[in-house]
Design a protein around this nucleic acid. Structure first.
Length: 596
RNA sequence: CGGGGCGUGGCGCAGCUUGGUAGCGCGGGUGCUUUGGGAGCACUAGGUCGCAGGUUCGAAUCCUGUCGCCCCGACCA
């Protein structure tokens, strides 16, 4: 390709719409154009990058025996209603674009394809002899994000690779899951990325085990926690750790403490000389289920710990055996609307009576009571007395006449000790999620009644796995991780071009001829070369080449009359003056699969 | 959904407080000069000031509404 025909429009000014570096560079380099919020056109330069990523993914998956397909983007609501996700995807998180056709039939624009593929496979595959199946597609997905941002990082229309595997038993699923994890490591390594694989919450997709692949970058939206020995890593949403022993309470006789206006842990400690770990904090939440019931939840957690809402939501979902559409803290406004006289926020104890809910208009009339592991062992502790401006000392959980479900709903934090080895600590870093693999189990096959006949002649639901890679997000994550103050530094394997040849002055025939000669030779030997043949000043061409991040640059300039050119590496910033045969030799070593 | 900010040529912005012929830089076009790190000079094209109402002799500017975009938040009672 010649720059004169590339439609290369680069911007000098930093665009106002972007505030992370990768987004700015992609716009300045002419890689993307925004059409509206969270919706971008992939311009020719970026399309080349996306195709290279796509090739790497396809090659790796093909060697693992995966099949490629292309599934419909418009999906009928019925299959989503069968899987139980229509409501949570169109109402709760509201992530699916949905519409009605001229017959009034409801359709969704695919945010993911579990339902579609499960239905298709179940109509196609009937015997264990045809298993396992591992099938994938690369195509555009649609998600009506609450808040699209950062360009391709969180957009409403994006390119994703999604794979689905089908198995006769859990064991076979686990082996494919492990194989896919390896495939992912190979793919991201080939893409030239620094990444980590961490335990993850499976979120709305559901299922058992799940891991995320994260490109480490300060601008990442996820907080990940990694043990110092590298043996444990998890998204904070999922992370587990051990908590420090609390301070024991000297005053351990049951008694009432007057705590006027001391509503927070901080205030209680300040005015009464308590340690946060001596206090049990009780939070009131409201969980909305997909059957539209609203359950009040009472959570007890040690005062020095924080609540993890993801774990909380999962526990409630598990207990009620329903999807949770939304979960949030109960506010004063809420209880007024319900007509509940008084829940003394700031002074609640774990023994708050269900009677306070009697007058609730639409809420369920009993609390779901959860207690974090951190309060389980407490012999005595401070908590609210369920009366405004009063706390009390409790000295035995067994005296509380309400049942608590004890579980892990605590947020793991940097510095916490690890479960696998208490001498190790958790360290934090931020990550951009570019891949996510799940063991779905039989969740979708059961709800969609997708079965096969097993060896014994019995109908069994498929065991399923699913595996995603955000192709367009990966491209931007690569920029976030590989750039300098001059622009992008693409890893060679996914760069839009491998080499750019700059003719410093196109009016100089020697320069022009040698530039053309190199270009032709590189093209013939299948090196992806770009020739900057524009009648522009050399400085402009250097700036553009740096900005768009081509890994290798050859300059046909001053030395052209002696048959010499300059070979420059974008990343190391090293430059050599070489004759043509040395340039070709050097490049052939770099791109060792190709011959020059 | 809550809070904050911004909508003025293709891009980045000023002008608005105090109403009176719409400006600057980059980019585009033409010409001359320059020619290895986003050149100089001259000329030139390009804008219903997001949209709709209102106030006024007169609105980019003041008022009301509306649409769009960006940022923060939606965890400790």
């Amino acid at each position: 390709m010649r720059v004169s025909r590339l439609m290369l429009i680069t911007l000098r000014d930093v665009p106002a719409e972007a505030d992370i570096i990768s987004h700015q560079l992609l716009i300045r380099g002419g890689f993307i154009k925004r059409l509206t919020g969270g919706i971008y056109a992939y311009m020719p330069l970026l399309w080349k990058v996306l195709k290279k990523i796509t090739r790497i993914v396809e090659e790796e998956l093909e060697t693992k025996g995966c099949l490629q397909t292309l599934l419909p983007q418009l999906q009928p609501s019925e299959i989503w209603e069968k899987s139980g996700r229509w409501k949570s995807y169109t109402e709760g998180e509201g992530i699916m674009f949905s519409l009605k056709d001229r017959q009034g039939k409801e359709l969704g624009l695919g945010p993911t394809h579990e339902e579609v593929i499960t239905q298709i496979i179940s109509q196609t595959i009937h015997s264990y002899k045809q298993l396992p199946i591992n099938i994938f597609q690369i195509q555009t997905k649609f998600r009506d994000e609450i808040r699209p941002r950062f360009g391709l990082m969180r957009s409403r229309e994006f390119i994703m690779k999604d794979a689905y595997s089908f198995h006769e038993n859990e064991y076979d699923l686990q082996s494919t899951y492990a194989e896919m994890r390896n495939a992912y490591k190979n793919i991201f390594t080939k893409c030239g990325l620094d990444f980590v694989c961490v335990d993850a919450d499976s979120g709305a997709i559901g299922g058992a085990a799940s891991q995320e692949f994260m490109v480490t970058a300060d601008s990442g939206e996820d907080l990940i926690l990694i043990s110092t020995d590298g043996k444990y890593g998890a998204n904070q949403e999922k992370a587990v750790s051990t908590f420090e022993e609390g301070e024991s309470l000297a005053n351990n006789k049951p008694s009432i403490i007057k705590t006027t206006n001391q509503k927070t842990i901080e205030e209680l400690c300040k005015y009464n000389d308590f340690h946060p770990s001596q206090i049990v904090k009780v939070l009131a939440y409201l969980a909305t289920c997909d059957d539209n019931k609203k359950h009040p939840v009472l959570i007890s957690i040690r005062g020095d710990q924080e609540l993890n809402e993801i774990k909380l939501s999962n526990e409630i979902s598990h207990k009620l055996k329903r999807n949770i559409l939304a979960i949030r803290a109960i506010s004063n406004e809420d209880i007024q609307k319900q007509g509940i006289d008084d829940i003394p926020f700031g002074f609640i104890g774990p023994d708050l009576s269900d009677n306070v809910l009697l007058k609730a208009k639409v809420w369920e009339k009993t609390f779901i009571r959860l207690a974090d592991n951190s309060v389980k062992g407490l012999k005595s502790f401070i908590c609210g007395n369920n009366i405004k401006d009063e706390h009390k000392v409790f000295y035995n959980w067994s005296l509380i006449n309400t049942k608590q479900v004890v579980c892990d709903i605590r947020k793991a934090k940097p510095g916490d000790r690890c479960i696998h080895d208490e001498t190790q600590n958790l360290q934090e870093c931020r990550g951009i999620e570019i891949g996510h693999i799940f063991q779905l189990g039989t969740k979708y096959s059961k709800s969609l009644n997708a079965t096969f006949t097993n060896e014994k002649g019995i109908e069994d639901p498929f065991w399923m796995g699913c595996y995603g890679i955000g192709i367009s997000r990966l491209a931007q994550a690569a920029v976030e991780q590989n750039h300098d103050d001059l622009g992008i530094i693409w890893p060679v394997s996914i760069a839009p071009f491998e080499v750019i040849i700059i003719i410093a002055n196109v009016k100089d025939t020697e320069q022009k001829n040698i530039g053309e000669e190199i270009y032709q030779k590189l093209i013939q030997t299948q090196i992806d070369a770009l020739l900057d043949d524009r009648d522009e000043r050399a400085g402009i061409k250097f700036k553009d080449a740096d900005l768009i991040g081509i890994p290798w640059r050859i300059v046909a300039g001053r030395e052209a009359k002696s048959g010499l050119v300059e070979l420059h590496n974008r990343k190391s910033k090293t430059t050599e003056i070489l004759d043509l045969s040395s340039v070709f030799k050097k490049l052939s070593e770099e791109f060792n699969t190709k011959k020059l």
